[in-house]
Design a protein around this nucleic acid. Sequence first.
DNA 1: CGCCGAGTTGAACTGAATCAAGAAACGTGG
DNA 2: CCACGTTTCTTGATTCAGTTCAACTCGGCG
Lengths: 197, 197
Amino acid sequence: MDKINLRQYLATNLHVVENDVLEIVEHCTVQQIKKDSFLVRQGEYCRHGFFVEQGLLRQYSIDEKGKEHIISFAPEGWFITDRESVYFNEPARYFIQAYENSQIVLLDEDFNQLISKKISNYNTFNTKLLHNHIRHLLKRIDLLLSASAEERYLQFVTMYPDILLRVPQTMVASYLGIAPESLSRVRKDLARKNFKK
Amino acid sequence: MDKINLRQYLATNLHVVENDVLEIVEHCTVQQIKKDSFLVRQGEYCRHGFFVEQGLLRQYSIDEKGKEHIISFAPEGWFITDRESVYFNEPARYFIQAYENSQIVLLDEDFNQLISKKISNYNTFNTKLLHNHIRHLLKRIDLLLSASAEERYLQFVTMYPDILLRVPQTMVASYLGIAPESLSRVRKDLARKNFKK
DNA sequence: CGCCGAGTTGAACTGAATCAAGAAACGTGG
DNA sequence: CCACGTTTCTTGATTCAGTTCAACTCGGCG
């Protein structure tokens, strides 16, 4: 997948030239993360936001029965963090783990301070991100409340065609809240339907 | 239920004296809303945030089969709006309806402009609200992915004991994503278990 | 070549939905 | 304050979507 550069990304989205964000981004740590390693574990305190320049992360919880539930994926160009932990200073409720070897930028409190001081419309942008996040979560809740496994899968396919190709089916199932076997059957069924048409 | 006053609410949460918010709040329209009337309908453009001073609102979608799915409740002291519609200028995806006769304050774009200009930490407060909202939605998704009907109900009981008493069971069921009959059975079961203990 | 994780398939099971009917609770008007 | 209709809740019988468990297939990859 194409690499995305935080500097470029910010310049574009904040409507400024790259030089304006250069010195801010230079302060940030860039990390190369090996597949399967953790950025945050449940119970730890998460102190950073993460911007994915390359690779793919996933965020998930583990319930009492030991089952994983994927909260979100983050491919390149996405921010991810445990907001509760960062913002409210609580132990993280979710794991954040690299599913592919990834390159990520660590964003700490200093980064936030600095950028919101230097770039006036950063706050606007950030608020927009928050609104987008909320919109997205609401949509997902609505789907979980109203749609069948098949409908949810179809929705996932159209919404995240790229991610679909990069993660094992098991993880898609976990994201959708269904058993891997069920997803397999759903797909079989869809294939049959399409063939009939 | 106790009435909550926006002026007081803001003064407390923004850490300013009431006078500072007085003139801002005075510009806002206060409305008396009859039970069952709508503040926003699916498809309409929502132009306001709503603060509930008294009463109880609910936000819900209707799926293709005509079924209602409750996205959220808003009792006194809560803000509610269709963020997508207000913020992204899209048609609302959800209905907002009064379940009780209510008194609400309409907050428009002017209000936002004015208050964020006059009161410096309003933005901080607002961001905090957004973070809280996200935390809350994440928790709900996690529950929908991992917990049984009974577990979700128990969680609701501890989380919203007040709302539980104010809305019919059907609505709680709709919020939890289960059929009313199922909720009835869940409750019966819980009663039996408690008796046995 | 042989192993290993991912996906598939089958069969039995189960939590929850649906449909239908009755019982309680509730508000309204007489 | 009672009688009434309406809405909400309960209960039972049946069905169904999705789970679980177990066995098997397939495609890498060391």
